[in-house]
Design a protein around this nucleic acid. Sequence first.
DNA 1: GATATCATGTAAGGTGTTACATGATTAG
DNA 2: CTAATCATGTAACACCTTACATGATATC
Lengths: 183, 183
Amino acid sequence: MSLPHAILTALLEKPSSGLELTRRFDRSIGYFWSATHQQIYRELGKLEQAGLIRALPAPATPVRGQKKEYEVLSAGREELADWTRRAEDPKPIRSALLLRLRAAAVVGTEGMADELRRHLELHRAQLDEYLAMERRQFPPERDSEADRLRHLVLRGGIELERFWMAWLTEALEGLGVLDDPDD
Amino acid sequence: MSLPHAILTALLEKPSSGLELTRRFDRSIGYFWSATHQQIYRELGKLEQAGLIRALPAPATPVRGQKKEYEVLSAGREELADWTRRAEDPKPIRSALLLRLRAAAVVGTEGMADELRRHLELHRAQLDEYLAMERRQFPPERDSEADRLRHLVLRGGIELERFWMAWLTEALEGLGVLDDPDD
DNA sequence: GATATCATGTAAGGTGTTACATGATTAG
DNA sequence: CTAATCATGTAACACCTTACATGATATC
C-alpha cells in the first residue's frame, strides 16, 4: 500500500493536478515508486473520497479535460506520518534478470551476454542521470534536514545502480570465460 | 511474465508437485522471485494447458488431495531458452523504505530510526542465510558451469543485502545526528 | 477548421495477496 | 476415530499494465 503514500508525499511537496503528478513521478519520486497516470487518477479519486486530500476551488462542475488540482488535508498528513512510523517488512527481491541467469544455468547461456551488456548500459545511463540530479539538487551549501534526507534517498538509488553495474560486470567476466575458450 | 519461467526452471532442475515447488520457492528460487502456493497452482494449470509441462503418469482421475507431479516438455524447455535470450528491460526500483524516508523528509523523522534498525537486522539475518547457503552449496570443489552461474546469482543476493546494510547504517548515522543532539 | 497537446478518465486483463475449502494420509 | 499434516484447490479482492476514449485549449 505505498502508492497512496507516494502521492501524499508528492502533493505535500507541491499541490498538483493528476498530469503534473504523473510527470513528477516520471522524474523524482517515481525513481523509487513508479506509477502510470491511470494508477494516479484512480488513487487520487480514492484519496479524495477518503477525505485525505481535496480538489482546490474549481469551476462549478469539474469536467473531463479540465485541470483539477489537489492539496493534502490534515488527515492526509497524519496518515502519511503514521505510515512512516509503521512496521513494514522489506519485500523479497524480485529480479527477472537473476532469475533468467538461473534459468540459463539449466538451458544454456547462449545469447545472454548481449542482454547482460544491454542491462549494463541501461544501469550506467540511470546512474549518470542520478549523478546529474545529485549535482543539480544537492550542492554542498544545501544542507537542511529535509535536503539531507532526500539526498540520502538519492544516494540509495545511486549505490543500487553501482551494485548492478558491478554485478553485471562480474557476470560478463564469468560468461566471457565460458563463451571464449581462447582466454 | 516471470513466474511461469521460474516454475519451468524449478521443474527442469527437478520434477515436482505443487507443494514441493512451493517449498522450493520458499528456499532457493523464491529468494529472487517469490510466489505463494495459490499462484503456483494457478500457473501450473496454465502451463499444462499450454502444453509446456505435463503431469506425470498418475492414478486414473487425479483428484483433490492427491499428489500430482509435473515435468517439463520440450516445448517448455524451448520457451524457457527463448526467454533467457529475449530483451527485457529491468524494472524500476520499488522500495517502500526509500519512499518512506522521502515522506519523512516532509512529515518528520520521528520514530523512523527504530524501523531502520529493524530493517538492518532483517537484512543482516538474510545475509547470514545467504552466506550459509553459499558455504553449503558452493564449496570450492564444485565448479561446473551450472554451479558457477547459480553461485553468481546467489552472490547477487549477497551483495544486495550488503548494499542495504551499508545504506541503512548510513541512514541511521544521518538520523542519529538529527535525533541525538549529544553527538 | 484541422492538428497537436493538455488533461482526465474507462475498460479489460494479468499478477499478486489473503482467506477459506476440501480430500488424503499418517500418528496417537 | 481424532487430530495433525500433506496436498490441491476456489474465491475475492487489490494492484499494475496496456490500450483506448473524450473533452479542452492552443497554434497554424
